[in-house]
Design a protein around this nucleic acid. Sequence first.
DNA 1: CTTGGAATGTCAACAAGGCTGACGTAGTTT
DNA 2: AAACTACGTCAGCCTTGTTGACATTCCAAG
Lengths: 166, 166
Amino acid sequence: MAEDLRDSDTLLFLTDAQLRRAIEAMFFAYRGFTADPDRILSERGYGRAHHRAIHFIQRAPGSTVTNLLAILGVTKQSLNRVLRTLIEDGLVESRVGPHDRRERHLYLTDAGAELEAELSTAQRARMRAAFREAGPEAVAGFRQVLEHMMDPELRRLFAAAREGDR
Amino acid sequence: MAEDLRDSDTLLFLTDAQLRRAIEAMFFAYRGFTADPDRILSERGYGRAHHRAIHFIQRAPGSTVTNLLAILGVTKQSLNRVLRTLIEDGLVESRVGPHDRRERHLYLTDAGAELEAELSTAQRARMRAAFREAGPEAVAGFRQVLEHMMDPELRRLFAAAREGDR
DNA sequence: CTTGGAATGTCAACAAGGCTGACGTAGTTT
DNA sequence: AAACTACGTCAGCCTTGTTGACATTCCAAG
């Protein structure tokens, strides 16, 4: 009881200044997080939007456009512009749905998988390094806070996907 | 010794799939992180770029343009476009440097401070809620990982600023 | 079998916010 | 006096987001 009080009131008492620092940390960290992929992408004339599409197609091969739209939270016009270039460049393949022929199912080609691997490897390396330097206890905390910072519906989707991976 | 080994090799062994999930968590969390300010800003016809400028002027009142440029990592043309609208709208004041009259020192006006408070309050509320739900141990870990995800020079600057706040 | 609606794609136009390059002006330093 | 620095600005370009309108294709319900 006294323990609980200490936990919530003392250990978790955070001043506005501390919260502001955490906000800045999030900003700077996200910059680091995207820096390596951004470099690789710009060499090929792509941007982050391409990375996001490629990432989630790798994550869920055969995903429909509508599905991707919901995950990415952009308009179909915006996504379509990106997908078109990726398809033209032979990185993504769009197959007509086997059951519902209106749907387009998206897959990475070998070239697409290659770029995805390059991007992912760079980003995972940065993430792994940060985890290693921060230590094992920090990693669990990091992930918990991140999940709770998401919008509730997204957190549900994310948690479901996490479970589904097992 | 055996403890150390277990920590680094067992507890910190992360599969690529786990790292990929952490990457996605970072992406979704950042969206949540910016969602509330984005709403407030769009009501006023501003964007994230304005938020960043306002935030760091609040953080370091009297900061010069060059200084802000270094922190934000954008070109002066890009920053200037944002600063101009903020100055025109009476949210930011630009004073000629007292020692070096080439410099412009930036300050929030009362109206600027008001918007900053609104943005910061919303963002801190989300951060505080995430921290509360994740628990006290998670918070320290979260911050450690974030710091190690930054680019090294930025981490130095950030750490220095953190110390300077005390 | 027709028709409504869903899924997809496309055209056009626009805005924010990045970028480069060039240039001007004021002020400081050498 | 010359060189450098800080800042602002004009012009033009790109990516990536937006809205709105419209065509096509196809499933499914009436």
